[in-house]
């Protein structure tokens, strides 16, 4: 197994892909996952989710987790 990484909206466009896989043995935290896959610094205000729940960059990650990176959300209306 590995860690599945997902990107959304502007971050997905900037990186040119919506998904990546990371070997879990190479990373300890969500911030490590970004460093491993992105090749650029984490943009300011980026939100992180681990297994579909909001997380901090330092949150530990393990085999089988899904880690997502996305810009501030802009849903709703009015």
């Amino acid at each position: 197994m590995a860690i599945t990484v997902r990107f959304f909206a502007g971050i997905r466009e900037r990186l040119g892909r919506n998904q990546a896989q990371v070997d879990a043995s190479a990373v300890a935290s969500a911030a490590d996952v970004w460093r491993e896959v992105a090749g650029v610094p984490l943009p300011p205000n980026t939100l992180i989710a681990v297994n579909q729940e909001y997380a901090q960059p330092g949150q530990a990650v393990r085999d089988g987790d899904e880690v997502a990176f996305f810009p501030p959300v802009t849903g709703g209306a009015a």
Binding site: F8, G10, L47, F70, P72, T74
Partner: peptide, 28 residues
């Protein structure tokens, strides 16, 4: 519910304007 939704639910708006497409980067 509507106020919390706007800051927490993972939705992103991409607008099509006269100058092309742009991501909405902040709450409007």
């Amino acid at each position: 519910i509507i106020e919390a939704l706007k800051t927490r639910a993972p939705f992103w708006k991409q607008e099509q304007t006269e100058n092309g497409a742009r991501w909405v980067e902040r709450q409007t």
